[in-house]
Amino acid sequence: MTKYARFVSLVFAGLFAGFLTSVLVLELSLRGFDSTVYTQVRLVELDALDKLAVAALLPALIATAVPDPEQHIIVWTAAPGSPSYDGLRLPTSWAADQKRTASGSFG
């Protein structure tokens, strides 16, 4: 059973890596266009890519979570108010600012 779970985990992790590579290629290929084309593609990308990423990554995580004494999942967290916590919150604030700017609402 664990061999099959490992295989499924590797397949879906590979799909996710391929997904990330295709997003990188898309981003690099858009640099040659003007800002209107880039903005339109980014709005479509922001609408759908998160769902595709979850669809590719979630089965890999589930297959990895199948009990196997040789596999471990370690999660590190930061204490609220610590410099590490503030550093982890910073990209989230950037994403919220970008969402507000894209939707045109500033309040």
Score class of each variant (00 low, 15 high):
L20Y: 08
V11M: 09
L58A: 14
K51H: 12
R31W: 10
E45R: 10
F12W: 13
V25K: 13
A13M: 07
L15W: 02
A55C: 05
L20G: 08
S35Y: 03
L20M: 14
R31H: 08
A48W: 05
V23G: 05
T36L: 12
Y38T: 08
E27Q: 15
L46A: 06
L24H: 13
K51E: 12
L46T: 00
Y38L: 12
V25N: 09
S35P: 04
S35W: 12
L10Q: 08
D47M: 14
L28T: 12
A55V: 07
L49I: 00
V44P: 00
A53F: 11
D50E: 11
G32D: 02
R31Y: 05
G14F: 13
D34M: 02
L10W: 07
L43M: 14
S9P: 05
L57N: 02
V11E: 04
L58N: 02
A48F: 06
Q40I: 03
D34Y: 07
K51I: 06
G32R: 10
D34K: 06
A48D: 01
G32T: 13
V23I: 04
L57M: 13
R31K: 10
S35R: 11
D50M: 11
F19G: 03
V8S: 09
V54W: 09
F12T: 04
L43N: 13
A5K: 00
F33E: 14
F16K: 01
A56D: 01
L57K: 01
L24I: 07
V44H: 14
D50C: 01
R31D: 04
T21M: 10
L57I: 07
V37W: 08
T39F: 12
D47P: 00
V23H: 05
G32V: 06
A17H: 00
Y38E: 10
S29E: 15
T36R: 13
A17G: 03
A5D: 00
E45D: 10
F7R: 05
V54F: 10
A53I: 02
L28Y: 11
